[in-house]
Design a binder for these strands. Structure first.
Lengths: 132, 132
DNA sequence: CTAGCTGCAAACTATTTGCGAATTT
DNA sequence: AAATTCGCAAATAGTTTGCAGCTAG
């Protein structure tokens, strides 16, 4: 994840990259800043914003929007996947589904388009256990 | 669409409601304001924002986010559907797909959730004509 | 008449940016 | 040493809101 392409490897970037790769969730900038600051207080929000934008442009990070007004981030190297958001807790579960993707491609084609990107978000509520 | 529920029917609201019901696309606030102003210059952006929020709370309008930082709006009475966004022009095409919905429900269940809401957005680019 | 609405401009929130100082290569 | 990058604070963009006047019911 730290293989750079023409960028200077500063302490701040190293730090932010580390926080990102260790994150299992999909943190927003504020959260990234909070975590980074906890490890080394010499980072500013501006740098987090700049780094995150840089990584996005380099294709290392993907910007997501799950509502709430803040952008959330997802490392691009974790493969193609969608999200299931628990409406009660806000927890995000990742999943992949090839059948779904194929279907979307078919729909796009039917409408005369080539699929560029697919965004599937399922908002759900934990189902009550069937027994037990 | 104009059946109100405990709201005063002011000229501005009537105007905005009309612009909304006549819109075939998914306009953002700025666009709504532009169209409303063209019909009657005595509207302010603030009122458009307030009205749109009011209608959303009443369940008459649905707020969407297709990227680009601005909220876009969709009358709720047009039935369940998804969106295909033309990445080059920003045009939004609506479509419904029962097969897709069923599949999403299955996926949710597999993960232990009941489906509450489904958001499917296909970003595509106009496919070059195969012939002619 | 009165509760509720409107316009204006100031306030907010998330994000970007200009600039001089600090760092990386 | 040269080019980047950083932190700060001011600037943006979209949206919300306080207040005094206006209007529907």
């Amino acid at each position: 994840m730290c293989i750079e392409r023409g960028l200077k490897m500063t302490g701040q970037r190293r730090l932010i990259a580390r926080v990102l790769s260790e994150a299992e969730d999909h943190p927003d900038v504020e959260e990234l800043y909070r975590r980074a600051s906890a490890l080394d207080a010499r980072v500013s929000v501006a740098t987090v914003y700049r780094t995150v934008r840089l990584l996005e442009e380099k294709g290392i990070l993907e910007r997501r929007d799950f509502g709430g007004g803040r952008a959330r981030f997802d490392p691009a190297d974790r493969g193609h996947h969608h999200h299931l958001i628990d409406v009660d807790t806000g927890t995000v579960i990742e999943f992949a589904d090839a059948e779904h993707d194929a279907l979307a491609r078919t729909i796009a084609r039917r409408l005369g388009f080539d699929l560029v990107q697919l965004r599937l978000e399922i908002f759900g509520r934990k189902a009550p256990a069937k027994r037990g």
